[in-house]
């Protein structure tokens, strides 16, 4: 703090206000008298349940697909890894709507893979699976990024030591590498869960919107705005609370 010029306080304070003020403004708009009723209505509960279920599934899918990807990106010196890393990060930069359109042309009924799946009797469009696919697509880079960074920072010293003592690669991975980066893995999981929970654009473009099947909390909020703005505010507030809890969790994991 001593080394920082004092005028930094002003823009930093403004920045903090810029982020916090809208949240306060929204909280001030919540109609507390009807809050519980709005929250426990059938459609709200269905959306909440669906959101939690699909986001947990997506986070698990991110772990299964993302951990091996992060390991390869951090440890392999094969050619093309840099290109691979850029490609993997695309969903992070892409507007989710574009992701939804891309997914539509991949696993939609007439999509690249979708038309073959259709022959096999697998219908992805308008199903909960479509929601999970959309969420995993946008959340995966979060896990890969945070884990790859941690793997690079951790370095390979312990892995080399274990290998020199005769441990086989799989044993090194499960006994040395993964325990070493466990905090980063956890915070990566929390972040990808949070991203999945907030996913809107890809879902509405690709999966559709039906109560209990594809209408997650963000879609429900957007729909409620049309007819019942108070319910939309109440649900937004809940999502905001979840976000705060998630960030608290992710940060606690990160600091030793």
């Amino acid at each position: 703090m001593r080394t920082l010029p004092r005028w930094i306080l002003l823009p930093a304070g403004l920045g903090a206000l810029f982020v916090i003020l809208p949240l306060i403004a929204m909280a001030a708009r919540v109609e507390w008298s009807g809050f519980w009723g709005l929250l426990t209505s059938e459609s709200s509960l269905a959306a909440l349940r669906l959101s939690v279920q699909t986001s947990l599934t997506s986070a698990a899918a991110c772990a299964v697909l993302g951990v091996p990807m992060a390991l390869l990106l951090a440890r392999s010196d094969a050619r093309g890894m840099a290109l691979m890393r850029s490609l993997v990060l695309i969903p992070l930069v892409l507007p989710p709507v574009v992701g939804g359109i891309a997914l539509l042309y991949t696993v939609g009924r007439q999509g690249l893979l979708g038309r073959h799946l259709e022959v096999l009797g697998i219908h992805i469009a308008f199903s909960t699976t479509a929601v999970v696919i959309a969420q995993t697509f946008v959340a995966l880079p979060f896990l890969v990024l945070s884990l790859e960074g941690a793997l690079r920072t951790a370095g390979t010293r312990y892995e080399e030591a274990a290998a020199s003592l005769g441990a086989r690669p799989s044993r090194v991975l499960t006994r040395v590498t993964l325990p070493l980066v466990l905090p980063a893995l956890m915070s990566g999981l929390v972040l990808s869960f949070a991203r999945a929970l907030g996913e809107f654009g890809a879902t509405i473009t690709f999966a559709g919107s039906l109560q209990g099947t594809t209408r997650t909390l963000p879609l429900e909020i957007y729909l409620q705005r049309e007819s019942d703005p108070e319910a939309a505010v109440a649900l937004s507030f809940v999502l905001m609370l979840v976000a705060i809890v998630v960030i608290a969790l992710a940060h606690r994991r990160r600091s030793p």
Partner: peptide, 17 residues
Amino acid sequence: SEEQSVTDVLNKVTSGE
């Protein structure tokens, strides 16, 4: 699916979904 707007409905039809 019960979409948010008529455009969303139309897109699902024109894309063959």
